[in-house]
Amino acid sequence: MTTLSAEAPAPAVTTSTLALTGVSRWYGNVVAVNDVSMRLGPGVTGLLGPNGAGKTTLLHMMAGFLAPSRGTVTLDGEPTWRNPPVYRRLGLVSEREAVHTFLTAYEFVLASAKLHRLPDPAAAARRAIALVELEDAQDRRIGTYSKGMRQRARVAAALVHDPQVLLLDEPFNGMDPRQRLHMMTLLHSLGDAGRTILFSSHILEEVEQVSGTVQVMVAGRLAASGDFRTIRRLMTNRPHVFTVRSTDDRALAVALMAEPSVTGVELDRTGLTVKAGDYGAFTRALPKIALAHGVRVRQLLPEDESLESVFSYLLEG
């Protein structure tokens, strides 16, 4: 496991630290989150993991909507569970698309500002709506919005009190590419301004584009954490398994053994199973080798390329 090295941008606001110590959560016999410890400081952190890895459970515990079965979740030393005052510094955008559809976005965000007892709720609401670029639609009922627009309305409501910590559960779900880009830019700028931003995602590319720091969860455990590039390298350097079928499997097997990127070849009746250390080098070398030995490749199937298997590999590593 690599160590966390968050890049600290120049803090423009008071910064907050969200700390999890030995946090577990179980439902009956099912362990959803297993002994997770992490500290989140200023900047954007991605919480990456396949569906069902416990990301949402972890986020709910961070946001004070679930008691840890064991361990502690604190924001600047105060527990988040049964402690409403933490919401002065914390904002949450949950995954569930729940909005008061009968309100307009402006009314919705204004209500949030009022509930926060902000000194000038109207100004705060306008600022938050401008931040998510929803001004043009702000006087329409949320019920008429697209999924992406609803999401932005929810983000505006969560940002209205300018929290130091913002937690977002799968914020890019249902957004079109333009909205996605805009949200990514927004998260970046919030992170650069010294806020602690954590968002969850099961899509590698989303995390890659938004955050330098990443926490990877697999099956309730923290599988890796730290700089995204390091984790990416771990992921690309793991052994890849391919199934190859050709006109002459035996000849191809012999030729492949000479290829440096190949770490193992297995020959059976259905074809070849090739283990390669470097995904790119192997897939580039295979056509050349086949051509040089007069073998025609009929099928090349990468095995086990699901995100789950990538994550499981990290867990073993």
Partner: peptide
């Protein structure tokens, strides 16, 4: 039921 209660609960209000 519909989850909108979260919006009210994520506020620093005594319950």
């Amino acid at each position: 039921d519909d989850g909108t209660v979260v919006h009210v609960l994520t506020k620093p209000l005594p319950r």
